[in-house]
Design a protein around this nucleic acid. Structure first.
Lengths: 343, 343
DNA sequence: AACAAAATTTTACGCGCGCAAATTTTCCAG
DNA sequence: CTGGAAAATTTGCGCGCGTAAAATTTTGTT
């Protein structure tokens, strides 16, 4: 609707009949100007469709309202879902989140961190790749940008860590499975990239030994992030070779379990907790699709809401504290057992 | 490892012993400076870990190398997957892609477009919300930013459209199902947000009538983007009421089908193409998880590679053409039938 | 060794806005 | 009506880099 296009804030201010610094102040915080002035500005913004230049705006600002969100693999529904929630919370709080995915690659993660560093972020929420992360690159990043780690913890990096308590996941599933049937073997990738996988393995060993039982592993081959396919191939193999040591399988994560269940179905192996079933399968994560597997998957759920709330809230506190905490805190939320049909 | 931190390009240039404009030229295109100069610069970049200020860089540039990617719902694995591929291609071509998700909300889509407009994008790849998109907002955006639409077509908007041919999807599934058994009914949401859903419905009607068959619909209620849950609830309802008009169900998309299959499993309804099965189920999209459903899902697949390749390639051509095409082109790739176990 | 072409340097200006200090105007209560 | 605080304005500088034109150096060729 604007008669002509506005070049800059100077012109726009003149058009409204106020000074540029006042306008600048308005864009920085609409409540910092008088109500009548604000109304005039806002009606003019409507009419002329003016927006301040993003780059000029951020160039001289001490601190921007930009937040960087980095996850290892955005095509994983688990991360997609948690990012979805976190993004919304940042927007609600008046920040501008930007999402990046490392696509499972160390080099890309480093590139993203480099890009982010030049963005004068107010803060960053970083879920690192884990084992394949370039530790020194992440350390350098955290020194330059107020960062809260989530999902995967890297010893001492960032101002805080928020995630789930892997021990709690495994403890609940193992105890439940032992209480209701044969003790489970642990189905996992031989070389998992994610540090959470190692923690789950260790938790499994600890819980089993505590109960006086011997840990048993089914380790499958595979690289990359296509966990369903890896879980399926591994499942087809162990079913063909009949090498499962027990009738109860505890998968390290839901994506592996989804693949494993598909292998069971294909081989006509009945899964469930009924007496007529050959196998019980449980897992961890409460993946968005675990409700729709056949049978539906018994799993230990992340407290998605608590993790994302806490991560975001911690970051906001960090930003308000000027980017540094006195002591690094680690928050880990316990899991919640979701009993469905598979075990 | 730098002794001190470099403030700006001036300082950095002095440190290397070259002029600032040469350095600027290098960052714009490393091949535009002499080989020996380039080597000196690059070794210094390593040593001092200097990066030009992102905001100052983009402020006066005529054209940036930034590309905006917008999808309606990033937590949908279909979009997550296609974004993953597109993002990589942009990076390989030397661009800086930034991904945004509209989270299924009109208002958020508009906000994103506003943000993007102030980013001086070289170009944008936009998959609009569809029915709930603010058409005028999208039109304004496309007038200001070189845009290629993908996935959902909006009449006349953007410089080009790249997507899949919905008619081809439905034609192949319907013909296959009719050839091998009872004609399918069409299982869909009553009020789908995505325009592709309407096109699939119309294609179903057309193909059925062409074969002299009467189209039959199963329309289920539900709002939002949780298609699996909607498909499941709808499935439980029709199975309870025994209101399926045929023994063959063609779902509008895979996510509905995933929910429907889960409802079938729960009700003990056997799905598959065997003689002992009660129901056949097929669908469209070749969702990343459709291979792992039980039974695995027979579906019409997007040519993911072709769509993303073509979308990206079209955008690059558009950018090189200065942001405008003489005529708006629409490219639609045919589907490929993937026969699995469900039908 | 001379010379044209390519690369680099010098010089100079501008982008659009942040920000700070001092001044003026506006507002509300007494 | 008046005083004082809050809000708005004026003034002016600076950010870090893009970019253009002209002058200079380097490079490769005959």
């Amino acid at each position: 609707m604007g008669r002509r296009t506005i070049r800059n804030m100077e012109e726009f201010a003149a058009l409204i009949g106020i000074s540029r610094p006042t306008l600048s102040k308005y864009f920085h915080d609409p409540d910092s100007v008088r109500q009548s002035t604000r109304a005039r500005i806002e009606s003019a913004v409507e009419r002329y469709d003016y927006r301040p230049n993003f780059f000029a705006m951020n160039q001289n600002r001490k601190l921007t309202k930009n937040i960087g969100i980095v996850v290892p693999y955005l095509a994983d529904p688990f991360f997609a879902e948690i990012v979805r929630v976190i993004e919304r919370q940042c927007i609600s709080a008046g920040f501008s989140p930007t999402v990046f995915s490392s696509h499972g690659e160390t080099e890309l993660e480093n590139d993203i961190l480099d890009t982010l560093r030049s963005l004068k972020l107010a803060g960053a929420l970083l879920a690192p790749l884990g084992r394949v992360s370039d530790k020194s690159a992440i350390e350098t990043f955290c020194e330059n940008v107020p960062t809260v780690l989530f999902d995967s913890n890297l010893e001492g990096m960032g101002e805080a860590f928020v995630g789930s308590d892997n021990h709690s996941f495994v403890e609940q599933t193992v105890q439940y499975l032992c209480r209701t049937g044969e003790p489970p073997c642990f189905y996992e990738m031989r070389n998992p990239a994610n540090p959470n996988a190692n923690k789950r393995r260790n938790a499994y060993i600890a819980v089993m030994e505590e109960m006086g039982l011997e840990p048993q592993f089914v380790r499958i081959d595979g690289q990359g992030w296509e966990f369903e396919e890896i879980g399926r191939e591994g499942g087809l193999k162990v079913l063909r070779e009949k090498s499962l040591p027990t009738n109860t399988v505890l998968c390290s994560n839901d994506r592996l379990a989804i693949g494993f269940l598909s292998a069971c179905y294909e081989n006509g192996v009945s899964v469930g907790r009924g007496n007529d079933c050959e196998l019980r399968v449980a897992s961890h994560d409460d993946h968005p699709f675990s409700k729709f597997t056949c049978p539906s998957l018994t799993t230990a759920a992340h407290d998605y809401a608590a993790v994302s709330d806490q991560a975001v809230e911690t970051l906001f506190r960090l930003i308000e504290s000027g980017g540094r905490f006195d002591t690094r805190t680690e928050t880990q939320f316990p899991a919640r057992l979701i009993m469905r049909e598979s075990a």
